[in-house]
Design a protein around this nucleic acid. Sequence first.
DNA 1: GAGAAAAACGAAAAATTTTTTCATTTTTTA
DNA 2: TAAAAAATGAAAAAATTTTTCGTTTTTCTC
Lengths: 279, 279
Amino acid sequence: MKSILLNMRSLYNEMGPGERKIADRLIANPKAILPLSITEFATEIGCGDATVVRFAKRLGVGGYQGLKLAVAQEISTLSDENAQISKSDSCYDMFVKRIGEIKVALENTASVLDENSLEAAAKAIMHSKRIVIFGLGNSASIAVDAQHKFLRVGLNASACNDNHMQAIISSHLDEDCVAIGITHSGQSTDIVQALKIAKLNSATTICITNYGESPITKVSDICLFTKSAETKHSILAMSSRIAQLTIFDCLYTYIIANSDSKAIQAIHNTESALKDKKL
Amino acid sequence: MKSILLNMRSLYNEMGPGERKIADRLIANPKAILPLSITEFATEIGCGDATVVRFAKRLGVGGYQGLKLAVAQEISTLSDENAQISKSDSCYDMFVKRIGEIKVALENTASVLDENSLEAAAKAIMHSKRIVIFGLGNSASIAVDAQHKFLRVGLNASACNDNHMQAIISSHLDEDCVAIGITHSGQSTDIVQALKIAKLNSATTICITNYGESPITKVSDICLFTKSAETKHSILAMSSRIAQLTIFDCLYTYIIANSDSKAIQAIHNTESALKDKKL
DNA sequence: GAGAAAAACGAAAAATTTTTTCATTTTTTA
DNA sequence: TAAAAAATGAAAAAATTTTTCGTTTTTCTC
């Protein structure tokens, strides 16, 4: 089944201003529509009932009720019990609550992640001569993880967590290379700079960032969006990082699935190379 | 929010024959109701519209539309659980299926993770003079991530991904230190060796590993277990690694919540130190 | 086992909600 | 700048849901 929220994004360009307001609202707060009648919802948005119906038809869900049902199916029932982690929680309580946050973030990410962009990113990575992955601070470990994965499938990947080196590396890329920048906020100066340089040198640039316009999206050929609701204690944006990891994981899985036997062999070689490291 | 299907079962005894027929049908095939109007559904069941409405009210979902919405929300969570990733999947399909795996792994981990061990680990880490975190290969990035977190709360943490250095570092620990070893299989020779040395030097040893007895559990004072079902393509044990990350995340969160104002200040300092790195 | 009370039920009326129609406004194009 | 096209909302029309109320079925009491 296709995600209704994703569908909304891909049809966004065809919509008029009124329908876009509806799409914006639904993407921002999908579950708010559920208890409302079409007239209530239209009033809330500031448009007529007919526009809502047209919007629903465009998405191919029949009508207003179909829209509500589609949205309902997309929202996890867990998203409501968004229990806030509190000081008095036991460590285990925190674990359980964090699980809830992660689930929500992953599902939200599934709804904003663009199918075509994902496919394009996977193909660009597979066929590139060289892949460089930039992350700093929080995102550094994600970059390292991605490097690790790509190396396992025999790709020429390297992560770089040093802002000087990032700029240097970027300036030596060419059109057969891929540069991947990871920044949750989309505003990390150094990462944006590194991708900008990479783009100037005709490399394919890919960003992994939280949903929305930001400096990084402007210098990226392909944007892969995560979506996580930040809360007070998630300064580290844990759930968005999990979403980032999962994106890399599915790129990796896709590359394995679409590789020739040589690549599969490379994976097996890796496995056997590691065998004697175990007791 | 409570499960509507479970609620149906618990109210089953209070229902008359007509309503029970509705419950039976919904439990057997919940999604069949979604495209039907109340009259169509009632005809299908063989009862009147009013009975359907009464049934919905009993469940506390307002009316027929509320019933449909509640069912819709419930089937979404059940739908994509046991899907195996296949070669022909799109990259997006893979993402969605991977999400399902991760959810299961996190829930399983919640069930095997020992509350007391978690608490003990958090306390040991908080009060230690020095924390060293060992990971190799796959687990290296987890170790780096953990280091990053602990540094943010002002702890003296260092990750080490070099097996020689791990042994050297371990041999210089003492009873005020904590050594954390990460290995999914629990069999990584070097990690086990490093923890063994740490233990000999009276450091507190903590392992993060998949559920079950293994060499690493024998040399660990505290064992934190994850539990993930491995499948063919998850050579990289993606979901178990997410579980590992989540464990570290809740340790981190717990430490923040139970720190004095000095530690909180350390976090704020980190934040402001990073501010000018953004555009 | 009969009769009364209670509960369950459905047909149809009433109320609500959704959808369509169509005239108006806004935007685009030539 | 004017004509064409697109977008939109108010209101009418259609569809759907909910309530009412009388009938049927079940349960309980004697």
